[in-house]
Design a protein around this nucleic acid. Structure first.
Lengths: 343, 343
DNA sequence: CTGTTAGCGCTTTCAG
DNA sequence: CTGAAAGCGCTAACAG
């Protein structure tokens, strides 16, 4: 490994004390340095290609410019996209991020959390939160800066950046209602996760707003994967034809795809026999057959703002009161939805 | 942030010198310590929850247990899956990884490479290699350990872990030939990337082996995305019907999906009018409609072995001669391929 | 078998 | 305006 230039060497070449070089290079505001010396130091540092050794610096300052990020599963394209936003913001502020998959297991969370940067990250971005997630209390107790992204806990003291899923559920229903649907179903996700819980709540609120009564038989527990969407749709298809929904809103695009596959296999045409609406607008939504009408969540932005907030905390901005950012969502109309047959 | 126990404190409590504690805790083989003292130190360290400060240690040892990984695009599910293998191996050996997307841009590679761990990673895993990629020479010149994963350069001095794409191209052709296909096409990728280049070479070798002549009109440049697969298939469909292929092998599953979509839109039935074969066996291959016959690449294993190799290098194992691992691939038969109509 | 000494490369009081 | 001194928490060579 090639030898690196050290502070001391720069100091020697400039004929000054290392401390002076340090002050100049970090342009310490509380210290006045003669313009001539400053220029000389700057010049020598530049030409010798000096770059501070961050290990040494970190040992002193106790800050590493390294943060951890805990996500459920990178193979879910949603999180991969979110990471892009995180990376982008990190790059701009000079932070690197260590990415870890927990598979949504609390035990794995604990293990990984303990391992991140061996205790030397300046903060952590958490995309694995459950509404009631005690593991996060431990993070807070440590005093380590953290920001929840995409999912929040019920605890208002956390800082978070989330999509406006309440509005999302509502506008999805409004859209389907406007098309003429009256029997609208919902493939929900876990009540334990804020996103899916809030989408379901928004769904109910939307139904009420447009004056429709919720038929509890049309709300089935699914999840955020294709498999769980399939299962849920299968159960929905067990209803007698006249009691089935003419349109459904899925917890996310993956579940919507699973639902479509099952519906299709059962001989239904989409959207003619059944309108299917996704949620999130992952890249695959536009590539499905038919392409999915969905609620667009600004995925990268979620990651970007989350990271920006975390960096501010890491750099000492006050963490009280907590930051709560809710990003707007919108309906994206494609071809998996249409007017109901009867209309 | 909660105060951490230091080596010195443990030493004081144990009534020994800090250096002794260090030796015991790292169980330095070249040093003998009385069993009684050792036990006492271990006990005190355990009960006080002592954990070495890796910044301090790293400053001394010049090793951080941190590696970088450069990938083209995390949103491509292939790389997300590969990262899982990397993470797994990293976890087992106590290494963390900083993940960076280059979008296959050399400039971005340079920038990011310079930024990783601000010069303090113990090695780097490179999944962005092009066959003739000068940027990697710079990594080698620095003396930093590195391993290429999935893609190799033409330079035999690199260490790499790749799939056996030569065999893959061959067995794909053999399989299609055995089904009765004679007009077999290939949607290729860039010649500049070893995987796609080698797949194409394997394709040609396979054709020769089964005694078929390659029709150059049936080999069209596509790429590794759905869009590029669509484009390529569109061009193939411009051929008069009797000169079109009855089966095609795509550069990967994504391209195969794009091809299927276009073929389908053009009124072709898959597999009856056209057999389509993918490559890689990403999760989405099994979820396509119809589900894709493909060549399975052990994706996670690629990442795992790559990381294991890198860790060995980081821990001082000799890097000469370079390690060249080629992982076996196999045909996975699903429903996007069948016998040709004529047969 | 254990202690001493001397840093790793940097920042940060505190003097001058 | 600049220098001296001290030390972050650990490891490694060398004594004893």
């Amino acid at each position: 490994l090639e030898r690196r230039v050290t502070l001391k060497e720069v100091a020697e070449r400039a004929g000054v004390h290392p401390a002076t070089v340090s002050k100049v290079l970090n342009d310490d505001p509380r210290v006045r340095v003669a313009d001539a010396t400053r220029r000389r130091i700057l010049e020598i540092a530049a030409e010798s290609g000096y770059r501070a050794d961050w290990l040494a610096r970190s040992l002193k300052t106790r800050r590493t410019q390294l943060v951890g990020m805990l996500i459920p599963d990178l193979e879910n394209p949603f999180f991969a996209a979110m990471y892009r936003g995180v990376e982008e913001a990190g790059w701009q502020s000079g932070y690197n991020v260590i990415l870890l998959n927990t598979d949504d297991s609390p035990q794995r969370f604990e293990e990984l959390f303990a391992s991140i940067g061996r205790g030397h990250v300046d903060g952590v971005l958490i995309a694995t939160a459950h509404r009631d997630d005690p593991t996060i209390d431990r993070v807070r107790a440590m005093g380590l800066p953290y920001v929840l992204v995409n999912r929040r806990r019920d605890d208002e003291q956390d800082s978070w950046v989330i999509p406006d899923d309440m509005a999302g559920g509502r506008i999805a229903v409004e859209y389907l209602h406007r098309l003429g649907h009256r029997r609208i179903g919902h493939i929900s996700g876990s009540d334990d996760i804020s996103t899916t819980y809030t989408r379901a709540t928004g769904f109910r609120a939307g139904m009420e707003e447009v004056g429709l009564q919720v038929d509890e038989n049309l709300i089935v527990r699914g999840g955020l994967t294709e498999d769980l969407g399939e299962e849920a749709m299968t159960r929905l298809l067990m209803l007698p034809a006249e009691r089935r929904p003419t349109a459904i809103l899925a917890a996310n695009d993956l579940a919507a795809r699973g639902a479509m596959r099952v519906a299709y296999a059962a001989g239904l045409e989409i959207p003619d026999d059944l309108s299917v609406m996704g949620y999130t607008d992952m890249p695959l939504a536009a590539r499905s057959r038919p392409d999915l009408t969905t609620v667009r969540v600004p995925i990268r932005t979620l990651g970007r703002i989350g990271m920006e907030t975390l960096v501010k905390y890491a750099e000492g901005e006050p963490r009280e009161p907590p930051v709560h950012v809710t990003l707007p969502v919108e309906v994206v109309v494609r071809h998996s939805t249409t007017r109901p047959r009867s209309a």
